Amino acid sequence: MQHFLDVSNLRQVLSLDSGTAALHPDEAVYESMLGSWEQQQRSRSLAEATIEGRTSTVRHFTDYAGSYPWKWQASDMDEYTSHMRSKRLAISTIRQRQGILQVFCSYLISPDYDWVEICEAQFGETPSQICLPWNTTKHVADYEGLPAKRALTFDEIEMLFNYADSRVETAIRDGRKGALAALRDAQMFKTAYAFGLRRAELRGLDIHDLHANARVPQWGQYAALHVRWGKSSKGSTPKRRTVLLIPELSWWIDGMQQWVGEGRALFAPGELPALWPTERKTRVSLEYIDRRFTALRREAGLDPALTLHCLRHSYVTHLIEYGYADRFVQEQVGHQHSSTTAIYTSVSGDYKNRILADALSRFNTLEVP
């Protein structure tokens, strides 16, 4: 439902032609600015969640500045950035908010729209671009995440999943509630690692996303995953890809067979196709996934800096250490650029020493006696 006035109706309400003043012209103009900007973004097929997030950022800045867009100045942006830094927001978050405000200001001052004319006639002031090259954060590094976030070692992966399995066994032995949810969670996180999935990709899996691979018929329907909720870009729909299970991670199959054949049915999901259903016959939420991983990591005694996304970093790193080609790894995780895959890679010292030893061995065979 439309909760704002389009430009033609706004002109009538403001009575720019008749000379009759509106009761609250500033609020009317502001809400119409935001509403029209939202429509412009929908015309680009941007996701509703993206549009809502951008609008929220503009409203937050408006509240902070204490003024409407036609009164904003570059100094307001300077103060807002200092405020964000004082809150210890990530550099990427600061740059993202600055980018949103820059796009909004560009929309307002574009000659293709009437906002400059409307503001000039109504308020005697006009919007301007407040996000300038000298007061916004530049993207100068490929990776801006926290240095503490890293790939898990093989030992840490084993420790995490052993602990997740032990929670299931303990709950069953003690006759406590939660054994089924613990089984689901254990297999869910194993799946995130075994296929290098993002959080939304993991949550969006359906039972029919399990696929066979003619090269390994003995694995049946557990040889590949069809990922349908990959990260979208520039207003596109979620990207799709098929991720193949590799032999080194085929231990995942036994647990998945147990989950699909026995565990999942106990949730009585009915017609819900979700691979990870809940007692309420819904999909697990993104918040639940984060919360459960954090609890498992803490209880297993692992580094507090490790997050669910670190399992994806671990997958990339371990595939490289297993000897898979860079291009194969890039396709598996759905990266458009190889440089992104390289950011995720953090091979161990043992791997580097092995590569060096192989290189030295080849070099020595080429030496002239």
Rank of each mutant, 00 (worst) to 15 (best):
H3L: 14
L5G: 01
S8G: 01
N9S: 14
N9P: 00
R11Y: 04
Q12P: 00
S15W: 00
T20G: 03
P25H: 07
D26L: 05
V29L: 12
E31L: 15
M33T: 04
L34T: 03
L34C: 09
G35F: 05
E38H: 05
Q40W: 09
Q40N: 09
T50A: 06
E52T: 14
E52F: 02
E52P: 00
V58T: 11
T62L: 11
P69G: 05
P69F: 08
S75V: 13
D76Y: 07
D76V: 06
Y80I: 05
S82A: 12
H83G: 00
R85S: 02
S86H: 01
K87Q: 15
I91C: 00
S92Y: 02
T93L: 01
I94Q: 11
Q96E: 05
Q96D: 07
R97P: 00
Q98W: 03
Q98I: 08
Q98M: 06
G99P: 03
Q102C: 10
F104A: 09
Y107P: 07
Y107D: 04
Y113L: 06
W115F: 12
W115K: 09
I118Q: 09
C119A: 13
F123L: 11
P127T: 12
Q129N: 15
Q129E: 13
I130W: 03
L132W: 02
L132V: 04
T136N: 06
A141D: 05
A148T: 13
A148S: 14
R150K: 13
E158A: 14
E158T: 13
S166T: 13
I172G: 04
L180C: 03
M188W: 02
A192P: 02
Y193Q: 07
G196K: 06
R203L: 09
R203P: 02
G204D: 14
L205C: 05
H208C: 05
A212Q: 08
A212Y: 01
N213L: 02
R215F: 04
Q218P: 00
Q218Y: 07
G220R: 02
A223E: 06
V227L: 10
W229I: 01
K231W: 09
K234P: 00
G235P: 09
V243Q: 02
S250N: 12
W252L: 09
Q257D: 05
Q257Y: 02
R264L: 01
E271M: 01
S285R: 07
E287G: 12
E287C: 00
E287M: 08
R292A: 10
T294W: 01
L296Y: 15
E299F: 02
A300D: 05
D303Q: 03
P304Y: 05
T307Q: 12
T307E: 03
L308P: 09
L311V: 08
L311M: 08
Y315G: 06
V316M: 10
T317G: 13
H318P: 12
E321T: 10
Y322S: 14
Y322T: 07
R327F: 14
F328M: 12
V329T: 15
Q330L: 07
Q330P: 03
V333M: 05
G334E: 08
Q336C: 00
D350E: 14
L360H: 12
F363E: 06
L366S: 15
